[in-house]
């Protein structure tokens, strides 16, 4: 019962993130919403796994936590430097 309430709360929070991603206004808001949605989905998968008696779903939650980070870094780098190949750092002297 309590787990079901937790699932409901997480789903409502996910809806809020999707709303923020749809209305924007800037691309950074969308990135924030995508990243935060990912974290909420990690938690949702974990709770669903315990609710339906399949804790093996936790593997997928771990993958989500990792993939979400890589996607956010790729987006961040794209927005800031307009390239995927440059190292992160202060100056682009020979880019």
């Amino acid at each position: 019962m309590l787990l079901a309430a937790g699932v409901a709360g997480l789903v409502v929070a996910m809806t809020m993130m999707i709303w923020r991603a749809i209305v924007g206004p800037s691309q950074y808001d969308r990135m924030l919403a995508a990243n935060s949605l990912g974290t909420k989905i990690v938690l949702l998968i974990a709770v669903i796994g315990y609710l339906s008696g399949r804790p093996a779903f936790l593997d997928i939650a771990i993958v989500y936590a990792l993939i979400n980070f890589v996607t956010t870094i790729a987006l961040m780098k794209f927005f800031r430097y307009r390239t995927l190949s440059r190292p992160l750092g202060p100056e682009a002297k020979d880019g």
């Binding site: 950074y28 990135m31 974990a46 936590a65 990792l66 980070f69 956010t72 870094i73 961040m76």
Partner: peptide, 26 residues
């Protein structure tokens, strides 16, 4: 495994937020 999920979330979420704010500011 729950501990692993926790470690990954605690590593990645603050770092991603930092990168995001950094990109937005710059």
């Amino acid at each position: 495994k729950l501990g692993l999920v926790w470690v990954f979330v605690m590593l990645t979420t603050p770092a991603a937020a930092n990168a995001l704010a950094n990109a937005a500011f710059s």
